[in-house]
Computed example of a mutant assay.
Amino acid sequence: MDSAVPVLIAVLGTLLGSAATYLFQRKSSEQAENLAHQRQLRSERMAIYSEFAEAVTQLRRCQYNRWHSDQENPGNDATEAAVEARRLRGVAQHAVFRVQLIASNPALIESARSAFVAAADMHHASSSQQLRANGNDAGDSLEHFITLASGDVQ
């Protein structure tokens, strides 16, 4: 009987050690998985937010061309500039949808929508001064988006 006590203690110690090791490894594995998920999410957000900024910037640039083309050919919605503007509008709209799917902040989504609308509506300006003002507003909206997005990827 006296020899059974140390054996029992050794077996219990081994079982406790195994259980503790299992718990620590499980927690460590969960932490590593969570960290990998956070890194992947950050990477995806960086890509989507930068693609959105690029799409809006291209749309904004194209809207200047479209406005000037509209001034030269009033009422002609089939000009190369108008067709390109519609194509880039679709690209930018798609980028807005991607932002909506991945953003964690409703203000960021609203900022993306505002930047898109500001750029998409630039060509409705009645004068070159208004076009510049609309372009500046679109640029400011995009800058606001970038500021919010940078906080979302930290």
Rank of each mutant, 00 (worst) to 15 (best):
Ser29Pro: 02
Glu30Arg: 15
Asn34Gln: 06
Asn34Glu: 06
Leu35Trp: 01
Ala36His: 01
His37Leu: 06
Arg39His: 05
Leu41Cys: 01
Leu41Thr: 05
Ser43Val: 11
Ser50Asn: 11
Ser50Gly: 05
Glu51Trp: 02
Phe52Glu: 06
Ala53Tyr: 11
Glu54Asp: 09
Glu54Leu: 11
Ala55Asp: 11
Ala55Ser: 14
Val56Ile: 08
Val56Arg: 08
Leu59Thr: 01
Arg60Thr: 04
Gln63Lys: 10
Tyr64Pro: 05
Tyr64Val: 14
His68Met: 14
His68Phe: 15
Ser69Glu: 14
Asp70Ser: 13
Asp70Gln: 15
Gln71Cys: 02
Gln71Ile: 00
Glu72Pro: 01
Glu72Trp: 11
Asn73Ala: 12
Pro74Trp: 02
Pro74Thr: 01
Pro74Ala: 02
Asn76Thr: 05
Asn76Tyr: 07
Asp77Cys: 05
Asp77Arg: 09
Thr79Gln: 08
Ala82His: 06
Ala82Met: 05
Val83Phe: 00
Val83Glu: 00
Glu84Ile: 09
Ala85Cys: 02
Arg86Tyr: 04
Leu88Lys: 07
Val91Asp: 03
Val91Ala: 05
Ala92Met: 14
Ala92His: 15
Gln93Glu: 13
Gln93Thr: 04
Val96Thr: 03
Phe97Trp: 08
Arg98His: 15
Val99Phe: 07
Ile102Asp: 06
Ile102Ser: 09
Asn105Ala: 06
Asn105Ser: 10
Asn105His: 09
Ala107Asn: 08
Ser111Pro: 03
Ala112Thr: 06
Ser114Trp: 07
Ser114Glu: 10
Ser114Pro: 02
Ala115Phe: 04
Ala115Cys: 06
Ala115Glu: 07
Val117Pro: 04
Ala118Glu: 07
Met122Gln: 14
His123Pro: 02
Ser126Thr: 11
Ser127Ile: 02
Ser128Gly: 06
Ser128Asn: 09
Ser128Thr: 07
Ser128Val: 04
Gln129Leu: 10
Gln130His: 03
Gln130Arg: 04
Arg132Glu: 08
Arg132Ile: 09
Gly139Glu: 15
Asp140Gly: 04
Asp140Tyr: 12
His144Gly: 01
